[in-house]
């Protein structure tokens, strides 16, 4: 899966879960950059991403992400 396409899909998920049409993610985006991206919405985001991409993360993988780019890389590696 192309990184750009994955980022686009993840962006749509963020818009839907956080109910904020203005979200524009980049590889460098972190939770500090997105309003309302807190620990509870993080769970909603992970659930929505796992469902959308039909994959499962491990808790270690989730804890290792420091930005959206690393999340996208993880999605792509699981979709290969």
């Amino acid at each position: 899966m192309e990184k750009e396409k994955a980022l686009e899909k993840v962006n749509k998920i963020f818009i839907d879960v956080l109910d904020n049409e203005e979200i524009v993610l980049s590889d460098a985006t972190t939770a500090n950059d997105v309003e309302d991206w807190d620990s509870l919405t993080h769970i909603q985001l992970v659930v929505a991403i796992e469902r959308e991409f039909n994959l499962r993360f491990t808790s270690m993988e989730i804890q290792s992400w420091t930005n959206v780019g690393e999340m996208i890389d993880c999605i792509i590696s699981k979709n290969k």
Binding site: I43, V46, E50, R56, S59
Partner: peptide, 9 residues
């Protein structure tokens, strides 16, 4: 309908 072990959900 869904089990998401990564986030214990």
């Amino acid at each position: 309908s869904g089990v998401f072990e990564s986030v214990n959900t």
